[in-house]
Design a binder for these strands. Structure first.
Lengths: 148, 148
DNA sequence: CCTCTTCCCATTGACGCCCATATGGTCCCA
DNA sequence: TGGGACCATATGGGCGTCAATGGGAAGAGG
């Protein structure tokens, strides 16, 4: 109800510790509780070098999107590769942290810090500088280059 | 009613205290009450190095615009990156102050003082000198240079 | 048997919720 | 018209709580 806890908003940067863990911002954790999300589904963004994190419904939406285009098109092929081949379930530990796996590091370029970015119904993991650059580019009206 | 308290007008500069808080000018707080705004949606402006502050309706307007395009399109992704990733809900403390977070400092360059600028249906937070410069430029009819 | 993960606890610093003080202005009244 | 009570705003600071982070130890898997 309060607008504050029902959507993923804003961005914040946290450190990765020696064990490869990083705290999810408390505000985001509250949204997860509010939405009853316990299992996190992580997948690669179609456009940006970022990992999208949300509940199982996030996967549902992406699958519907894939289904809405010609299943034999290169676009559908590419999306399926990212969603089905690159998706993974994760859980938070008791302190609200998640493991930054090689899968995440490799796709995003994250090494020592993670920028958490709210996306309303999900949030994303970014390499800090990449996020700054992408946001600045978006303000200028430029679109990110897309993989062929 | 009188026209004085229903719009954000004029500008004022206040100090940030040792704990990183700053008082929102009483005139602006009155407008917030008049408009029934309790939760403040703060957005990193698209053009200027300033934070725009308004009610939840400010976010609603942007979200309707996003909803009007294909949600999986690059355009929607780009707008969400700015509107969701660059916005956050905040609330004032009992004395009418708000925390000047890194989210605000980093984007505006604000360090020790904040200039509050009325924009009719919302107001903005500026680094004082940046506001002076932008206003002088506007008087000369020059347009702002977009952020790099 | 060794390594990686999971669970648990400790520390520290930040933030929220209070209450206190200063400063400047307004209004009333002598 | 000058003084002074009164008031609203801006600002300062104490203190409890929670978040972010670090690290030990037990458990699982190779």
């Amino acid at each position: 109800m309060s607008g504050v806890t029902n959507r993923f908003l804003s961005n914040a940067t946290n450190r990765i510790d020696a064990k490869g863990r990083v705290s999810v911002p408390a505000g985001f954790r509250n949204v997860l509780v509010e939405r009853g999300i316990q299992e996190l589904y992580c997948l690669q963004d179609f456009i940006y070098p970022a990992i999208s994190v949300g509940g199982p419904d996030l996967l549902d939406r992406y699958e519907r999107q894939i289904a809405s285009v010609d299943p034999f098109s290169p676009e559908a092929n590419r999306m399926s590769l990212l969603v089905h081949g690159g998706g993974v379930f994760m859980r938070l530990d008791a302190e609200g942290r998640l493991m930054v796996t090689d899968f995440i590091r490799g796709f995003t370029g994250i090494s020592s810090e993670v920028t958490f970015v709210g996306r309303s119904d999900h949030f994303q993991l970014w390499q800090p500088q990449a996020f700054q650059d992408a946001q600045a580019a978006a303000r200028e009206g430029r679109f990110p280059s897309r993989p062929a």
